[in-house]
Nucleic acid binder design. Structure first.
Length: 152
DNA sequence: GCCAACGTTGGC
DNA sequence: GCCAACGTTGGC
C-alpha cells in the first residue's frame, strides 16, 4: 500500500468538493504531466492520498482521500469539448490516466507549505523538490510527520 | 499580477 | 539530438 499527495486548486475543486461526492468519489482528471501520470498509473485501490490545496492564500495539506478505482484512461483526453482534450491521445493508445478518489477526512489543522519547508524530516518530500509536480509519492514516515503536525 | 522553475515543442 | 522559444504551474 502506498501513499501519495495530490494537488488541487480549491477554487477549482477543493477538499469540500471531494467530500460532497461521498463514497461515489470523483475521477482525479486533468493530469497532463508524464511524471504525475506515471504516479497515477502506479496507484492501487486502498492507497492513501493527501489532498493539498495549491494556488491559494495558504497552500497546505488539508486532508486525505483514498484511491477507490484502478487507474483507467482519462476520457476527457478524447473529448474535443473538454478543456482537457488532447488530440495526441487516442482510444487505442490513451496517453493520460485517472483514478477515482473518495474523501476520507479533513485533518484537524491544515499543514501549510511554509511549515513543511521548515520541517527537516520533510525536506525530501517530492512536493518540495519538484514544485510543479501535481501528483507525488509520500513515504510512511513523511505521512506520520505531517499527521503529527496537523494534530499539534 | 509577477516571475522563477521547469516541462514541452519544433526547427535545424 | 540539441536547444531556443514558448507555455504552465504555483508561491509570493
Amino acid at each position: 500500500m502506498a501513499n501519495w499527495l495530490a494537488k488541487t486548486e480549491p477554487d477549482e475543486f477543493s477538499l469540500d468538493d471531494l467530500a460532497a461526492c461521498g463514497e461515489a468519489g470523483e475521477p482525479w482528471n486533468g493530469i497532463r504531466n508524464y511524471q504525475a501520470r506515471n504516479h497515477l498509473r502506479a496507484m492501487v485501490p486502498g492507497d492513501r492520498v493527501l489532498i493539498y490545496h495549491s494556488a491559494c492564500a495558504e497552500p497546505a495539506v488539508v486532508g486525505e482521500a483514498e484511491v477507490i478505482s484502478e487507474p483507467y484512461p482519462d476520457p476527457d483526453a478524447l473529448n474535443p469539448d473538454s478543456r482537457y482534450f488532447d488530440p495526441k491521445s487516442s482510444a487505442d493508445e490513451p496517453r493520460w490516466a485517472v483514478v477515482k478518489l473518495a474523501f476520507r477526512k479533513r485533518w484537524p489543522k491544515p499543514v501549510p507549505l511554509k511549515q513543511i519547508k521548515q520541517t527537516e524530516a520533510l525536506a525530501d518530500m517530492a512536493l518540495l523538490r519538484q514544485s510543479r509536480l501535481s501528483v507525488s509519492p509520500v513515504s510512511d514516515a513523511q505521512w506520520a510527520v505531517l499527521e503529527a503536525l496537523s494534530a499539534q
